[in-house]
C-alpha cells in the first residue's frame, strides 16, 4: 500500500488479502500468509495499515434471521422528496432502527430508496404512516414488500478489480516481472 498526495493506493497483494478476508474474516494471519506465500508478519502489517486507513471498515457477523426463527418482513421504500429537503429526510430516516439501508437517486424526481425491516405488514405500515410520511419534504411513497431473496452479497474485490486503473498498473508490473 502506498500513499501519494493524500491518496491511498493498494497493490495486488493488498487486494488478494481483501479477497480472502471477504470470504472469511476469521482466518489467521498465518493461514492467509500460507495461501499467498508470504510471512504472517507481512499479512499482519498490511491488514493493520488497511484498518488504520479505513479501507477495512469493519469486521462483522452476517446473521441469517430466518434460521434464527425470526420471521422479519423486508421492504424497499421509494420516497419521492422535495429536492430542498431530501438531505434532511435521509438524515431523519437514518435515525429509525427499522431502516437498514438508505440511498439517494436522481431520476425524473429526486428519490430516496430505503430498505426497511418490520415484524409484519401492520408494523411496516405503522412505521411508514407515523414516522416517514410526516417528514417535511416527503411528497409520496411507494413500497414494495420483498417476497423472495435470490442474492445478497457485497461487491467482491476480485469482480471489480479490472475496473480499477491502479490495479491494472500493478498487474502489468507483475506481468513484466514474469510473475
Amino acid at each position: 500500500m502506498k500513499h501519494r498526495n493524500g491518496e491511498t493506493t493498494l497493490d495486488a497483494t493488498d487486494l488478494k488479502i481483501l479477497e480472502i478476508l471477504q470470504e472469511n474474516a476469521r482466518l489467521a494471519y498465518s493461514d492467509i500468509g500460507k495461501r499467498l506465500g508470504l510471512a504472517h508478519s507481512t499479512i499482519f502489517e498490511r491488514i493493520k495499515k488497511m484498518e488504520a486507513n479505513g479501507i477495512i471498515a469493519q469486521y462483522t457477523v452476517k446473521v441469517d434471521l430466518e434460521r434464527m426463527g425470526t420471521k422479519k418482513l423486508m421492504a424497499m421504500m421509494t420516497i419521492y422528496t422535495d429536492p430542498k429537503e431530501s438531505e434532511k429526510v435521509a438524515e431523519q430516516l437514518g435515525k429509525l432502527p427499522q431502516i437498514i439501508e438508505i440511498y439517494t437517486s436522481l431520476s425524473e424526481e429526486l428519490l430516496i430508496i430505503a430498505k426497511v425491516i418490520a415484524e409484519d405488514q401492520e408494523s411496516l405500515h405503522a412505521l411508514i404512516a407515523n414516522s416517514v410520511a410526516p417528514l417535511e419534504g416527503v411528497l409520496r411513497i411507494r413500497t414494495s414488500i420483498v417476497t423472495k431473496k435470490f442474492k445478497e452479497t457485497q461487491p467482491s474485490i476480485g469482480a471489480i478489480a479490472d475496473k480499477l486503473t491502479f490495479i491494472k498498473r500493478a498487474r502489468n508490473i507483475n506481468r513484466g516481472k514474469g510473475t
Binding site: 421504500m77 405488514q121 405500515h125 411508514i128 410520511a133 409520496r140 411513497i141 411507494r142 413500497t143 414488500i145
Partner: peptide
C-alpha cells in the same frame, strides 16, 4: 395511503 406503505 392506497395500500400498505403506499402514500399518495
Amino acid at each position: 395511503f392506497t395500500s400498505i406503505g403506499n402514500y399518495t
